[in-house]
Amino acid sequence: MSIVLEATKREVIGKGASRRLRHAEQLPAVIYGKGKEPVSITLAHDAAYHAQEKQEFFTETLTIKLDGQDITVKVQDVQRHSFKPKLVHLDFVYA
């Protein structure tokens, strides 16, 4: 079973933009690696949070649907809130 996450591309980046996304129950993330340009994306927080509860999230490749194309990635880093059950940021690398 492969984990699939829906994403949208972010045009506005920075601390303020990320904070606004988090208040709107969205999760900022980035995909990078393999000599390609980094892509800033936005995920639905609840979908990503529930996906990261599964062991496959950290050990298998994931599929991110972005602008009609499927991107295969692996999780590189997960940043969690210090005391709330929330994610703050995700880093993915191209698989």
Rank of each mutant, 00 (worst) to 15 (best):
K84V: 09
A24Q: 15
S18W: 02
I13P: 00
K36M: 10
D67I: 02
Q52R: 07
F58E: 12
R80N: 13
G33T: 04
I13G: 06
Q26C: 12
D77Y: 09
D46K: 12
A51M: 08
K65M: 11
H89I: 11
I31C: 03
L5Q: 15
F83C: 00
F83P: 01
I13C: 10
D46A: 12
A44I: 12
E25C: 11
V4P: 04
H50Q: 13
A29I: 07
R20Q: 09
D46I: 12
V39E: 10
K15F: 11
E60C: 09
R10N: 02
R80V: 10
P28L: 10
E11M: 06
K84I: 14
E60W: 08
A29Y: 03
S18P: 02
V30Y: 03
I71C: 02
H50T: 12
H81N: 06
P28T: 11
E37P: 11
V93K: 08
K74N: 10
V73C: 11
P38Q: 06
V73D: 03
E6W: 00
G16D: 08
V93I: 15
H23Q: 13
A47H: 06
K54V: 03
A44P: 07
H45R: 11
I3L: 08
A29E: 04
L5P: 07
L43W: 02
L21V: 07
G68W: 13
I3S: 03
R19F: 08
L27F: 03
Q55K: 14
H81F: 10
A44W: 01
L43M: 01
T61V: 07
T72R: 15
K54R: 12
L90I: 14
E37A: 14
F83R: 06
T72V: 12
H50S: 13
K74P: 00
V73P: 03
D46G: 09
K74W: 00
K54D: 10
E25V: 07
